[in-house]
Structures are given as structure tokens and as C-alpha cells.
């Protein structure tokens, strides 16, 4: 089975545990070992500091690495801190960027329409999937963001295992929410999810380098679900989402 990682991170972290594989060639090595053919990658500088510069850094970093596709971090364009919709569309099209990542808590901005209407309007119009870590819009905020922008496909990553009582009602109410499987590890998590919600809302990802690719692939490979469901999760769903992008 082949995998496509919907979300991993490149770049030098400020702090990391001993042995953590953060360098690009280490990440590529683990991807190869884990049968991960390709990945969407964002840059830590874009995520942690300077968004536009970090996005540019990302492009330079992966220019000669066909397995890695760029994922840009995004902000509302207030004070021209980020690109407005038209410029963003052009830049994404020019650079082969098909997904965005937001971080409203970390970037200290509201996720409500009064603040993010332009950015999300663009994402909806161009069918650009938007990623964020669950911690950036947890609990009721997850519902709000999915409900406020029903035409945007959202993928939540870094979910851990304790969110199902919050997640379930949002999945029921909002068809535009997808779950990155990286560390979605409730006991029988994928089986239960597929039983109540269907495999086409699950998207394989690793959360590399802070997450484990070996764990992430094992989670899907060993899940007590059908081969067809595994294929959808491993690469099918993200390929479909990416194929729908219209820049």
C-alpha cells in the first residue's frame, strides 16, 4: 500500500527531543522507509514566525524534491501582513501550492468571518483545503469554523485521542470536516470512525517530525477496516481533495 502524507513540517525547530528527525533528508529517509510516496509540507518559520518568508523558504527547500509539495501557512491580510485573495491565488498557482494551513490561536487572530472572510472566501471559491492543528480551534470553536465556512474543506491534524465527544457532533453537523490520522489514536479509533462516519473523511498524515511516521502508517495498516477503506485513507481522500483545487 502506498501513502501520501497530508501534513508534515520542514525546517529547524527551536527545541526538540534527542534523536528527533527534523532535517529534510531525515524526513525523506523516514518517508521512504514508511512507503510514503509524497507529502504536503509546510515550513516551521511560516508556522512559528514569519509567515510569508517562511512560505518562500519552503519553496526553496523543496525545489528539487518532487516528493514534497508545498503547503502554505496563511493569515488574514490585515495590515497587508499576508497576501490578499487575488495575489494569493496567483502566487499559489505559480508555485504549485494547493493547500493552506491556518493557526488562529498561535497567530492571535479571530477565526470568525469578520476576520477571516476574505481568506476563507478564497479557499471556498478555489476549493483549497485548509489545515489546522486541533488545538488551534478546539471544542466548540471547531464547530464554529466548520459552520462559518461550509464550502471550505477543513482538515484537522494533531488531534491526539481525547476529542471524540467534541468531534462527533461536529462531524454530524458539518460535512466539510476531515480528520488527519497522524496521532488519532483512540482505541479502535479508525474502526469506530469508519463505522459511524466513513473512511472518506479520514486523511493520512504523520505530523513529522514531532509525530511518528512509523506509528502513523502502522495505525492505518493494522486498522480493522477494509482494504478499500485503507486505500482511501492512505492516499485516496487527499488525492481527491487536491484534485478538486481550482486556482
Amino acid at each position: 500500500m502506498r501513502f501520501f502524507d497530508a501534513s508534515c513540517r520542514l525546517g529547524r525547530p527551536a527545541a526538540f527531543g534527542e534523536g528527533m528527525p527534523w532535517q529534510t533528508d531525515e524526513i525523506l529517509e523516514i518517508m521512504a522507509r514508511c512507503h510514503i510516496d509524497g507529502a504536503l509540507a509546510y515550513h516551521i518559520v511560516a508556522r512559528e514566525g514569519e509567515t510569508q518568508d517562511g512560505n518562500e523558504l519552503l519553496l526553496r527547500e523543496i525545489a528539487q524534491i518532487p516528493q514534497l509539495q508545498p503547503q502554505w501557512c496563511a493569515l488574514p491580510a490585515t495590515y497587508d501582513e499576508f497576501l490578499h485573495a487575488d495575489a494569493l491565488r496567483d502566487a499559489m498557482k505559480e508555485n504549485g501550492v494547493r493547500t493552506l494551513r491556518i493557526a488562529p490561536k498561535s497567530f492571535a487572530h479571530s477565526a470568525r468571518p469578520y476576520a477571516m472572510k476574505e481568506l476563507m472566501g478564497f479557499a471556498a471559491e478555489c476549493r483549497v483545503p485548509v489545515f489546522f492543528d486541533y488545538g488551534e480551534a478546539p471544542c466548540d470553536e471547531l464547530y464554529e469554523i466548520c459552520h462559518d465556512y461550509p464550502d471550505v474543506s477543513f482538515v484537522i491534524t494533531n488531534t491526539a485521542y481525547a476529542l471524540n465527544r467534541w468531534l462527533g457532533p461536529v462531524l454530524d453537523a458539518c460535512g466539510n470536516l476531515y480528520l488527519g490520522t497522524g496521532n488519532y489514536v483512540p482505541h479502535r479509533g479508525l474502526e469506530t470512525f469508519c463505522k459511524y462516519y466513513a473512511a472518506d473523511r479520514l486523511v493520512f498524515n504523520t505530523n513529522l517530525p514531532t509525530g511518528s511516521a512509523t506509528a502513523a502508517v502502522s495505525l492505518v495498516c493494522f486498522a480493522d477496516i477494509s482494504k478499500e477503506e485503507k486505500e482511501l485513507i492512505a492516499h485516496g481522500n487527499i488525492e481527491r481533495l487536491l484534485g478538486e483545487v481550482r486556482l
Binding site: Y161, V185, P186, H187, S212, T214, A215, S218, L219, F222
Partner: peptide
């Protein structure tokens, strides 16, 4: 059953 076991097995195995 606090969380699943299969990802840890993979981590050790690989």
C-alpha cells in the same frame, strides 16, 4: 484501551 496499541507496535517494529 486508553488509546490504541497498533501504532506503538509499528513504532517498535520499524
Amino acid at each position: 484501551c486508553f488509546f490504541d496499541c497498533i501504532h506503538t507496535m509499528g513504532k517498535i517494529a520499524l
